[in-house]
Simulated scan of single mutants.
Amino acid sequence: MAQVADRIAVMYAGKIVETGTRREIFYNPQHPYTKGLLNSVPRLDVDGAELIPIAGTPPDLFSPPVGCPFTARCPYAMEVCDKVYPTATKLSESHGVDCWFQDERAKKLLASR
């Protein structure tokens, strides 16, 4: 994909969770699933590099979750993630992500810790 596509859309459980240019997605991923996906790709440029799998299992799409479908597998999940699907956050003209972690309220909470 990195050599063919100019723009990339990352999907999880039938929903687009992040969109951006090739550079934005590969060098500045913002959704936890995108980050996990990139960490689970084999590195051919590093000897002995280990794959880091994404823990857990995908949701049942016959009974999809109400909130973010990645919540059960997300290391950053907050209570709201399970209850409400996140609103889209526009990070730049070409980069967007659907993740509560990008919400200004979450950023303020993290900054106060």
Rank of each mutant, 00 (worst) to 15 (best):
A2N: 11
A2C: 09
Q3A: 13
Q3D: 10
Q3P: 02
V4T: 09
A5H: 02
D6M: 00
V10G: 08
V10C: 06
Y12Q: 03
Y12C: 07
A13Y: 06
G14C: 06
G14P: 07
G14D: 08
K15L: 11
I16S: 04
I16A: 11
V17A: 03
V17K: 02
E18N: 05
G20I: 01
T21E: 08
R22K: 14
R23M: 06
E24N: 08
F26E: 03
F26Q: 01
F26D: 01
N28K: 13
P29R: 05
T34M: 08
T34F: 10
T34P: 09
K35Q: 15
K35D: 10
K35W: 04
K35M: 15
G36C: 06
L37W: 07
P42E: 07
P42Q: 07
R43N: 14
L44Y: 10
D45P: 00
D47K: 13
D47M: 12
G48T: 04
A49E: 07
E50P: 01
E50Q: 14
I52W: 08
G56F: 05
T57F: 11
P59V: 04
L61S: 02
L61V: 07
F62N: 14
F62L: 15
S63D: 14
P65I: 02
V66E: 15
G67H: 06
C68V: 03
C68I: 02
P69H: 04
P69R: 04
P69S: 06
F70H: 06
A72Q: 13
R73K: 09
C74Q: 10
C74L: 09
C74N: 09
C74W: 13
P75D: 06
M78D: 11
M78A: 14
C81Y: 10
D82C: 04
V84R: 10
P86W: 12
P86V: 06
T87C: 05
T87G: 14
T87K: 15
T87N: 13
A88P: 00
A88L: 15
T89Y: 02
T89A: 10
L91K: 00
L91G: 02
L91F: 04
S92W: 10
E93P: 00
S94M: 08
S94G: 00
H95K: 02
H95Q: 05
G96W: 10
V97K: 03
V97Y: 04
D98Y: 15
D98S: 12
C99K: 01
W100Y: 11
F101N: 11
Q102A: 14
Q102V: 00
E104A: 13
A106R: 11
K107A: 14
K107H: 08
S112E: 14
S112Q: 13
